[in-house]
Design a protein around this nucleic acid. Structure first.
Lengths: 346, 346
DNA sequence: ATCTAGGGTGAATGCGCTTTCAGAAGAGGG
DNA sequence: CCCTCTTCTGAAAGCGCATTCACCCTAGAT
């Protein structure tokens, strides 16, 4: 910058003005400065700018990555396992990026499950004006510290820290509506629910919705999911589906899986076993991933507006950067039931 | 930081050392500092650190986003159009993020097609140690300037600036191999090629591969694709497929689409028209997106290692950050033919 | 011709941290 | 008990920019 100033015969203050407030500089001077900058290959230092102006123009996102970056796993299995989280966090990223761009922000992302002063989380926190956290990716303790210095919004999951902004989708409502549809509209009475890990708050919320629907309909209310998947992948979906078939007793008339990935896996397993969907058994998912539309039969599911989660997160951050005093916000985004063939519709 | 220093009874230099080189500080002192930092909610300023140390620990990525962020398009159409680019740039992002994390970097991303001193591109460039650019997202002129200050690697597309590192996939080789397979192994002679926009270097390279295969086999060598899609989407794939059917003259025995999205769209259009694949006509794609495995019939295609593109980009950047003197590198990643039912295999 | 505005510019200060360069405090050897 | 060698810590000088304040110049008003 000093070089540019010298070369164009102005002071560094003027060079700064050319970039910050172009209109406050005479057009002729401005051109001279820009030309000098071009010749010298000048790239303004974001660090210096940020330091001086106390703002970075960057928003951050921390998301989980279940895949070990050092693992050189078999390509096929790898891509399959990844799809589950990719479809989710990638859409968040896309949503945030889009909304951020609309507001003139760039997006700094890092996947991480660990905290501490050396972690990527700390690095991200120090370089952004505000940031979003996917549930269970940053230790609560770190969030406490960080949220004292800059706006933080929590996406999905439980509200670990009550003074943070928080966004979730209506998991329970969606699953409840889905179950109601199966019970009332299709007349199914023996339903099974396949859940996820106990630590998955989304899966738990969906199970709660299922319970409510059972209660609403006067059916027996289960205490826990009929089965839990280790990971919410297609492979686990297939496994649990088969386990359900092999169980003693009456076969359920319908199975609600806690997400689409598992439901898709189940569809394949059932086909292999010669069980017809939906004639012999209805199958549903949750998420509304693109895949759900394509499989045979097309999957009845609940669409969550994942991308909007990201967009709303940015909106909240931007809002809070504008006025930091207001009360913490807690948003719940609506979901929508998508009726397709796998439950007997269409 | 001054507060932390005061509270823990040390100088700011020691606080700095606690974060930069923990081992150089006595354990007892270190604990005292960290405790004070926790109490005060201290978050180190990445800007100041970057300014002082002349390094950010962040890598950047600029990618195109064809969707206008202001558009509130119909959700269904929107998601379909997006899928094409999402599947690509999202995998790049994922690959880069993963590799970056392995090296201790965070990733700063921004979608943009414009340049200039006010653009997001400039902002990104000023905040990273090095960055990757997807072809045709940043004006060459800006790249010239930026690449004088920090390492830049170009992903896909033609090599616009010859002193930049550059990574592509073997588009031509892949399509050539694919066409060879159709010609030799399946005995097809009348093949049609559906290309993309003229400005799509990937699509053009694939067409070149197709030509080579024709030449190799002694078939007539076309000067241009039989048809060009406006955008490489499913909708355009369906449209071009129908146009091909409605043409006068002999129907082709096989159609090679420049990417999977179009091929999938074509599959649907052909099904609607009662044309059997592969019995009546063979169909192939390019990219190896997840969708290609799921459609009926499963799509014969060429898998490109998209995620590896991102990973390699990071590797190149990291390498160049280590020793900046070496010659510009140009990598071509191999692709692999995936034979599935849509060409008559399996 | 003198005075007043007001746009355009420069000098100087500080943003919060890293990083020498010394100096202070312990640890051992003579 | 003194001296040297480590180990640990502090003082101070920037890093490259934004921003305030003062200043100069030109143009219009008196």
């Amino acid at each position: 910058m000093y070089d540019v100033a010298e070369r164009s015969g102005v002071s560094i203050a003027t060079v700064s003005r050319v970039y910050r407030t172009p209109d406050s500089v005479r057009a002729q001077t401005r051109e001279r400065v820009l030309e000098a900058a071009r010749q010298l290959g000048y790239v303004p230092s974001g660090n210096a700018r940020g330091l001086a102006s106390r703002t970075t123009g960057v928003l951050g996102l921390c998301f989980p990555d279940y895949a070990d970056p050092d693992a050189e796993a078999d390509a096929e299995a790898d891509s399959d396992a990844d799809d589950a989280v990719m479809l989710y966090s990638d859409q968040i990223i896309r949503g945030m990026e889009r909304a951020a761009r609309r507001h003139g922000y760039a997006l700094l992302i890092a996947a991480s499950l660990e905290g501490g002063p050396e972690s990527l989380v700390a690095k991200v926190a120090g370089r952004v004006d505000g940031f979003a956290v996917l549930a269970q990716t940053v230790p609560t303790e770190d969030l406490e510290v960080i949220s004292r210095r800059l706006p933080v919004v929590m996406i999905a999951g439980p509200r670990e820290i009550d003074h943070l902004d928080h966004i979730v989708v209506a998991n329970a409502d969606g699953e409840r509506e889905l179950a109601r549809h199966l019970i009332e509209d299709h007349g199914l009475r023996r339903l099974a629910f396949v859940g996820g890990e106990v630590e998955s708050p989304d899966a738990e919320a969906r199970f709660l919705g299922f319970r409510q629907a059972c209660r609403d309909a006067g059916l027996p209310v289960p205490d826990a999911p009929d089965l839990r998947a280790e990971m919410m992948t297609q492979a686990e979906g297939a496994r649990t589906a088969e386990e359900l078939l092999d169980r003693d007793g009456e076969r359920p008339q319908g199975v609600l899986f806690a997400n689409d990935q598992m439901a898709v896996g189940a569809l394949r397993a059932l086909e292999r076993r010669g069980v017809r969907v939906p004639e012999d058994i209805a199958v549903t998912g949750f998420d509304g991933i693109p895949l759900s539309r394509i499989v045979r039969p097309p999957l009845t599911t609940v669409r969550q507006p994942i991308r909007q989660l990201g967009e709303q997160a940015v909106e909240l951050l931007v809002q809070r950067l504008g006025n930091s005093g207001s009360e913490p916000v807690s948003l719940m985004l609506p979901v929508s039931l998508i009726r397709r063939a796998s439950c007997g519709c269409g």
